[in-house]
């Protein structure tokens, strides 16, 4: 797994930094001179996971490329909250074109740089889950298949948040959104849907595919850094809780992301050329319910009557992930 073990006990690789650590071993976010690719004054909601994830990713990419980076952004929350005229929060060369074309725009940028003999400048594209798994999937698949030299980052908050929390192809089963209301026999989003985009990306056989969350900064940074050592199409899928859309407290953004991983619902792994090469194992196993309870979008599973049938079905998804990716450190005691 990516991320260096640190010989350090009080606070180790889980924290952002520490005064006791060799600066070289601290996370990029601990650096007082970090790029702050997304700077203050943006209009993201309080506790926005996407704003946080974007800064984590871009700062890491800036670090890895020595600042030789251009960024393409799909339409979505991230774009809207960062660049309302007359202000922009970006401190990197940044281009927003459309909702569904970020992969292609980025591939075009990479091609232009190659054509100009400026390949040392790297291209990163970023989009929300809607821009990635739904409207942008055609372009993304093309980018993968051509193996264009782009790192594509999906900030997955599991619905169309910018337009008011409608269901996307990445919305998990049973979640309430504005278009999957919590009414009827099977409240919330239906089961058996959604797209496993990391798996789709892997099926393209591209050099690198990884998942990460805003709850594990070191892991995220290591993956971005590793991705930047490679050329060709790379895909990074980052889980970014959305307090507004998930109905979670703004202070719980990282906690929720952590529980997503620790419950097994969001497997964190990496793969090269279509094969899984590393898995971030569960450190402190959390129950699925612990994760769901923090989120208003699942409240209908507990009130007015507890829906054990649905909870069991969600739990089965977690168990499936745990089995599929070997998420437990000691599977024999599971």
């Amino acid at each position: 797994m990516s991320g260096q073990p640190v010989f350090f006990y009080q606070v180790g690789t889980f924290a952002v930094g520490n005064r006791l650590l060799d600066p070289a071993m601290r996370s990029g976010q601990a650096d007082p001179d970090r790029a702050n690719a997304l700077t203050s004054g943006h209009r993201a909601c309080q506790g926005c996971g996407e704003a946080l994830g974007a800064r984590y990713v871009l700062d890491a990419a800036m670090r890895a490329t020595g600042g030789r980076l251009v960024v393409v952004n799909a339409t979505g929350c991230l774009e809207v909250f960062s660049t309302p005229y007359p202000e922009t929060s970006w401190r990197v060369p940044w281009l927003h074109s459309l909702f569904g074309n970020a992969p292609a725009v980025a591939a075009g940028a990479a091609a232009a740089l190659r054509a100009q003999g400026r390949d040392e400048i790297r291209v990163l594209a970023q989009a929300g889950d809607g821009g990635t798994v739904d409207i942008g999937l055609g372009c993304l698949s093309g980018m993968f298949e051509r193996n264009d030299d782009v790192l594509f980052v999906c900030y997955d908050n599991e619905a169309y948040m910018n337009t008011g929390v409608q269901r996307s192809g990445a919305t998990p089963p049973a979640a309430r959104t504005a278009t999957t209301p919590a009414v009827g026999d099977r409240p919330g989003n239906r089961f058996g849907q959604g797209k496993d985009l990391p798996a789709i990306a892997m099926a393209h056989g591209i050099p690198y595919v990884a998942t990460a969350t805003v709850a594990d900064l070191r892991d995220l940074e290591a993956k971005v850094a590793h991705a930047m050592t490679l050329h060709g199409a790379r895909y990074l899928h980052v889980l970014v809780p959305c307090p507004l859309g998930w109905g979670s407290a703004s202070c719980d953004t990282i906690r929720v992301a952590r529980l997503a991983t620790e419950s097994g619902l969001f497997p964190v792994f990496e793969a090269e050329h279509g094969a899984v090469t590393g898995v971030r194992r569960i450190r402190r196993r959390a129950s699925v319910e612990e994760y769901l309870r923090l989120q208003g979008r699942y409240r209908h599973l507990f009130e007015p009557t507890r829906r054990d049938d649905v909870l069991d079905a969600i739990n089965a998804i977690a168990e499936h992930n745990i089995h599929r990716y070997g998420l437990l450190a000691h599977p024999e005691v599971a």
Binding site: V70, V72, L95, S97, L98, G100, N101, A104, V105, A106, A107, G108, A109, A110, A111, A112, L113, R114, A115, Q116, G117, G138, C139, S141, G142, E145, R146, D148
Partner: peptide
């Protein structure tokens, strides 16, 4: 020379590629 010919996955993609290329200083 170094001109890049890209087989796009759609016309939407083709024009998007051109947008990205043009915005990055490439004659598209």
């Amino acid at each position: 020379g170094r001109c890049q010919f890209i087989n796009a996955e759609s016309e939407f993609g083709a024009m998007s590629l051109a947008i990205g290329a043009s915005a990055t200083g490439g004659r598209s």
